[in-house]
């Protein structure tokens, strides 16, 4: 699949514990209209898997269960490659919206 920079950011955000759609949006600083299609595509290509939250947890918080996302092992491999491509380090990626792609040398 086509590993764009936003895709890499989304993969990275999930790998770093942003497991819900809105959390990923917060972590990456991307628009919701960008993040969700990327999540769908990653899910379709089996790079991430999605599950529904346990109902009892949601009920205790008086809200409907949310859907959360995890990287698959294939997703982890792809993320690794992508990180090399964009030379993203853990530290940099953590800084969210200030990320810029590295100049390729």
């Amino acid at each position: 699949m086509n590993l764009t920079y936003p895709t890499t950011l989304v993969l990275h955000a999930i790998a770093n514990g942003s497991t819900h759609g809105f959390d990923v949006i917060d972590a990456t600083g991307l628009a919701s209209g960008t993040v969700y299609p990327i999540l769908r595509r990653l899910e379709e290509e089996s790079l991430v898997s999605a599950r529904w939250e346990n109902v009892s947890v949601a009920r205790s918080e008086a809200r409907p269960p949310r859907r959360y996302y995890e990287l698959t092992s294939a997703g982890e491999e792809v993320l690794e490659k992508a990180l090399k491509k964009y030379r993203l380090t853990q530290a940099k990626a953590g800084r969210g919206r200030r990320l810029r792609p590295a100049r390729s040398s």
Binding site: F22, I25, A31, S32, G33, T34, V35, Y36, P37, R40
Partner: peptide, 9 residues
Amino acid sequence: SRAMGSLPD
């Protein structure tokens, strides 16, 4: 605005 983002999705 986040809800509007559901349209591209």
